[in-house]
Simulated scan of single mutants.
Amino acid sequence: MNVGFIGTGSMGSLLIEAFISSDALSPSEITISNRTIAKAEALADRYPGMNVAYSNAEAALNMDYIFLCIKPHEFKQVVQDIQSSVHSDSIVVSITSPVLLSHLERELNCKVAKIIPSITNMVRSGATLCMYGDSMTEQDKSDLEQLFSFISEPIRIEESYTRIVSDLSSCGPAFFAFLLQQFVDAAVEETGIPRDGALQVAINMLHGTGLLLTEGGMTLEQIQQRVAVPGGITAKALYMLRQETEGIFNHLIRTTHTKYKDDLVKVSNAFCGEEVNGQ
């Protein structure tokens, strides 16, 4: 298999390293390019056999998959760069949510997909969100999902739900890491407990809670019911949380959707000058 990665920033390098560490791909199967070529060269130095391309067109040439791991405003130029390198059987994969499949299908004479990864893929966990263009066959979809199954659980979604499912899957680790940080910092501030010890307890708690929800087969409601004895400390604290956080996640979702729609309009204007009321 020959796989090209255009963009070796945070998510591009995460995918590359996850695929290699899981034995999904060997370094020799990977060709990378980056706007700052020194970053690509530094990554290749860590994985002997990995190939560095000195143009986007070269990174896409003769590749089975071409991953576009770039920012929304870079897409128009990169797509133009690779137009002459792809052919009808090439599969271009965007990992950027505001870039629609229709944007890519208009510009590229090849098959296109959109895959939204998560930082949890670093530890071969979490989901990858899979969306496909019209020319992708069922075999194409299965093959791509087989690749991602080395590092995640591939889940097919409708493109219209890209943003909300990305909130849950890809943004969620940052949101809940923030909440856990606030919990630990408050414990330190209120009681003077050493932060390292408090953090270790909290991390173990979060890991165990995840196991209860997966291997333990418990629901979110059941965990709360089992821990919160009526009239007890947890029940009182949960009541306070419900009062204080009412509507906070609705506001969070509205915030991410507003940003997504803004980015979608900019990308659509760049590709074809059209205003979009957004998915």
Score class of each variant (00 low, 15 high):
N51K: 15
S102N: 10
N2P: 05
S97D: 03
F271S: 00
F19A: 07
L25V: 00
T214F: 03
D185I: 07
V99G: 00
L129Y: 02
D196W: 01
Y260G: 01
N269V: 09
G172Q: 01
K141Q: 05
S84Q: 14
V99I: 11
M11I: 08
G231F: 10
S142G: 02
A127R: 03
I20T: 04
G49E: 08
T256E: 05
Q83H: 12
I203Q: 13
T214G: 02
S268Q: 00
G273H: 04
D23G: 12
M1S: 15
D185T: 07
E275M: 13
F178A: 08
T8M: 05
A57N: 13
M240L: 15
E29W: 07
K111S: 02
L144Y: 11
Q225F: 07
L264P: 02
D262I: 09
G273Q: 03
A202G: 04
A59I: 01
T36R: 08
H103L: 03
P154S: 07
T234R: 04
A18C: 08
F150E: 05
Y47H: 15
Q200R: 14
C110Q: 03
Q279S: 08
A57R: 14
T8F: 10
Q80K: 12
I203S: 04
L104I: 01
A202M: 04
V112G: 00
N277Y: 14
A40F: 07
L25G: 06
E190C: 09
I223N: 03
G210L: 03
E190G: 03
S13I: 06
Q225T: 13
L15R: 11
R226G: 03
A57D: 13
D64I: 01
D45Q: 15
A187Y: 05
Q181V: 04
S94P: 04
G12F: 00
E153A: 12
K236M: 14
N109L: 02
Y132Q: 00
H207D: 09
A60V: 00
E221Q: 13
N51I: 15
E138P: 06
R242C: 10
P154H: 10
L100Y: 12
F249Q: 05
Q200A: 09
T234L: 09
V3E: 09
I253W: 06
L238C: 14
F183G: 09
T234Q: 09
E189I: 01
P230L: 11
I115Q: 00
T31M: 11
R242S: 13
S149G: 09
I95R: 08
L264M: 13
V86E: 06
G9A: 06
Q181F: 05
G4W: 04
E153D: 09
F19V: 04
D263W: 12
S88D: 13
A53L: 11
E221W: 02
K71W: 07
E274D: 11
M122F: 11
S85Y: 11
D23M: 10
A270W: 01
I30S: 10
K76F: 10
S170R: 00
S28W: 08
I95F: 10
A18V: 05
G217H: 01
T128N: 10
A113L: 00
A228E: 10
A177Q: 01
G197M: 15
P154W: 04
K259V: 02
I115M: 05
L213M: 07
S102E: 14
S26N: 14
M50W: 09
S125E: 04
K261T: 06
